[in-house]
């Protein structure tokens, strides 16, 4: 049974965009068999090896089962741009892209991200060039204390991918999972609308 219970490289539903190589590399081998002693304090629980791609870079990390993707990004990989706000999926500060979809990194077990592709705020700018959303947030004054900003921008990026020309109301609903205490959201909504325009222009530019 231990063999079956292992997270097998090809047993997942996660087909789609993943490359086979990445998934094989991240097969989540655990160090001991399934049948083992009762749970131990976290510090002594056996670690799993996982592999994940973050912002295009491959990482192999050893994690205990109770560690979240957020823990790994911040504490193991030093990617502190992803913020811890509530650890309960209620504030959106830890929003990242996991295989192309936004998730609260605090609600994803690190083991569960094995073999995945993750994009964090550090991976949004390309070769030093800010993403149109980053630029719009800066220019429109959508940032005050800034703690919500990385999660906001990543959620907005997913929103615009799904709906390149959202109305204000659609932006507001799409951003409802990201709390901001400083701005009252007005400038955030405006910045996302502006970035949508810019990105449409860029696509047109590329198409012509």
């Amino acid at each position: 049974m231990s063999g079956e219970a292992r997270r097998s490289a090809d047993g997942g539903r996660r087909t789609g965009r993943k490359t086979g190589a990445a998934r094989r590399a991240g097969s989540g081998r655990r160090p001991s068999t399934v049948d083992r002693r009762p749970p131990t304090p976290a510090d002594r629980a056996p670690a799993w090896q996982i592999t994940l791609s973050v912002n295009g870079d491959p990482y192999r990390v050893s994690v205990r089962p109770n560690r979240t993707l957020l823990d790994v990004l911040r504490e193991e990989l030093g990617l502190t741009g992803t913020k811890r706000g509530c650890d309960q999926g209620e504030c959106g500060a830890c929003t990242v892209h996991l295989d192309g979809r936004t998730v609260n990194a605090c609600l994803v077990l690190a083991i569960d991200a094995d073999g995945s592709e993750v994009t964090t705020i550090e991976g949004l700018a390309r070769r030093g060039e800010l993403h149109p959303l980053q630029r719009a947030f800066v220019e429109e004054g959508a940032i005050q204390c800034g703690y919500c900003t990385p999660g906001m921008i990543l959620q907005a990026a997913a929103l615009l991918r799904q709906n390149p020309s959202p109305t204000s109301a659609q932006i507001r609903t799409g951003m409802a999972g990201n709390l901001c205490r400083c701005t009252g959201y007005a400038k955030i909504v405006k910045a996302i609308g502006k970035a949508a325009e810019v990105m449409k222009g860029q696509r047109k530019g590329r198409a012509s």
């Binding site: 079956e4 655990r30 976290a42 109770n66 650890d87």
Partner: peptide
């Protein structure tokens, strides 16, 4: 508590 309590993780495939 900040940390999730410890637990054993098992992935079923069937």
């Amino acid at each position: 508590r900040a940390a999730l309590p410890p637990f054993e993780y098992l992935a079923a495939t069937s």
